[in-house]
Design a protein around this nucleic acid. Sequence first.
DNA 1: CTTGAACCTATAGCTGCTGGAGACTTTACG
DNA 2: CGTAAAGTCTCCAGCAGCTATAGGTTCAAG
Lengths: 146, 146
Amino acid sequence: MLTIGKLGEAAGVKVPTIRYYEQIGLLPEPERSAGNQRLYGQKALDRLAFIRHARELGFPLDAIRDLLSLADDPDQPCAAADAIANRQLAAVEARIARLMALRTELERMITQCAQGTVADCRVIEVLGDHALCATDHRHPESAAVS
Amino acid sequence: MLTIGKLGEAAGVKVPTIRYYEQIGLLPEPERSAGNQRLYGQKALDRLAFIRHARELGFPLDAIRDLLSLADDPDQPCAAADAIANRQLAAVEARIARLMALRTELERMITQCAQGTVADCRVIEVLGDHALCATDHRHPESAAVS
DNA sequence: CTTGAACCTATAGCTGCTGGAGACTTTACG
DNA sequence: CGTAAAGTCTCCAGCAGCTATAGGTTCAAG
């Protein structure tokens, strides 16, 4: 049995975050010791590690809730999980494309700066021009994830 | 001249968000109509679109403030502009690297999810087991920026 | 048996918005 | 020109997802 501190250490999650996850219902209420301290088993550790990985991959808590409910019920088809992951992938790819454009522009500015001529900053242009966008972002990204 | 609603529509930003950006100093105070309504020109639209893209890319508002100061003042002492550009370039590169790792992981999850059941769904499995991670993602992405 | 680390609850704060209340301005229609 | 509805104004409260603080209790090492 793990105390909350050990659990957090094992999963790489801070203690208050674990309590927060419990509060919002992502983790079940654990057993308590005689002195009212939380005690966790392997299942809780697995679940917490799952949540952590998903958070790192950028899944919002709502999506994680969905994924957990899928994982809790392993005989159903995994199309739903696949769909969630695909949406996440599309979001990640769009970000990469635009970050590469921004990187190019920052590099250009730095190079020019070395020559003492940062007269024209096109940072705004690069990120500001819809025509340069790889993806349609007329709908908020957050809606596309979750 | 655009009213705040038109501006928001054009940039894909909600009206209260525009007022919020003004409040925290990311957008300058615009002209007002005789009846005290905000009126914006093309410059404000460019700036707002820039902010929106940068936000989508995950930059915190402080970093955006930095980038905007480059654009606002491209003739400032080269050393300052260079420092800002370099700092943001490092953040951008870290972000790209991180996102590429995430993309690889998501692709792996998805291609190995052969539309079976959740029981053998890689999406769920990969998220649950750190040992299956192809890449090191022990450092949260957000920490990589600024 | 004491001391100090780890735990408890409760609450407040953080970033970056988002939405509501209640009043005013603008615009479109008859 | 009048009126209605859509848009705008300010102010303030609340959300997601934590993070930190305060003030107290419990546990394990020496």
